[in-house]
Design a protein around this nucleic acid. Structure first.
Lengths: 153, 153
DNA sequence: AATGAAATAAGATGCAC
DNA sequence: GTGCATCTTATTTCATT
């Protein structure tokens, strides 16, 4: 992945609807090499895909919950239960295993507190925890899917 | 936003590279109305845009840090300092104001621990905090940009 | 080995129904 | 909502450096 690839990534991470000709204009080459480079990066798995971003608030999801989980069952069976639950819940948009004293972190998109209560009940019905602690996000001041690409402009 | 719009959103949230004809086939209508509905949702701001997703690990970013911030300066000037810093740092992909005893949460994409140290120094050089506590994510078991769209299938 | 130009195929966009 | 005309873009092939 050379400098041109990085430039291309920086552009299409922000706007995935641009034509290859337009991308080329912005990075200083023609459409053809842009197209080939993108295809190569798709094959290499550097590019994971193209998605449409939906405004969560506009579809009634005004509450973001960060759910911090602690367990005393550090076995594969328990983890499998949790992972299965997380995969099945569309409201869970992120599920991370953490270092430190919190074991797992969930990011959950919800309509309101009632929605959270229902989510919480579903979760503890399926999986048991040592501790569940949730904090709510008021506003996402910054939110991007664009990953920082190192190197010169 | 009716049921068809929701069906369309569910499809293009997962794959934004599909043709309107293919989307139509999946939701049971032809290409033209799909196109009109997407345009309408773009204008309404429901659709925020189309982006290409880059695999963070493949571009050398194998460390995700959740930085939890506490402040004792609850004034607009201080917040402005923090917000400016966050906007300027490409490594910060999310910046939320929280409820509860943690005031702000940052999600930061980094190469390694050295990269984190450098980030930390840059941050405390620009903004002062009462407490900075960071936890690192080992693996993102689930990670999606697709927002849950309510309603029947 | 990567680029650029031209030809072809597929898709987006606009109009009439 | 559907079907068709048109224009733009992606994709393939080929020549070039």
């Amino acid at each position: 992945m050379d400098d041109l690839d990085k430039k291309i990534l920086r552009v299409i991470q922000k706007d995935g609807s641009l034509s290859t000709a337009e991308i080329g204009r912005r990075v200083g080459i023609t459409a053809m090499p842009v197209w080939r480079r993108i295809k190569r990066m798709e094959t290499a798995g550097i590019i994971q895909g193209t998605v449409v971003l939906v405004d969560a608030k506009k579809v009634g999801l005004s509450l973001t919950a960060y759910v911090m989980l602690r367990t005393n069952r550090h076995d594969a069976d328990w983890f499998e239960e949790l992972a299965t639950f997380c995969q099945g819940e569309d409201a869970i948009v992120e599920f991370h295993r953490l270092s430190g004293d919190i074991d797992f972190l969930l990011k959950v998109l919800l309509a309101d507190m009632d929605d959270y209560q229902a989510f919480y009940r579903r979760m503890i019905a399926k999986v048991s925890f040592m501790d569940v602690s949730t904090t709510f996000a008021f506003e996402a001041t910054k939110q991007t899917t664009a990953v920082p690409i190192d190197g010169s402009l």
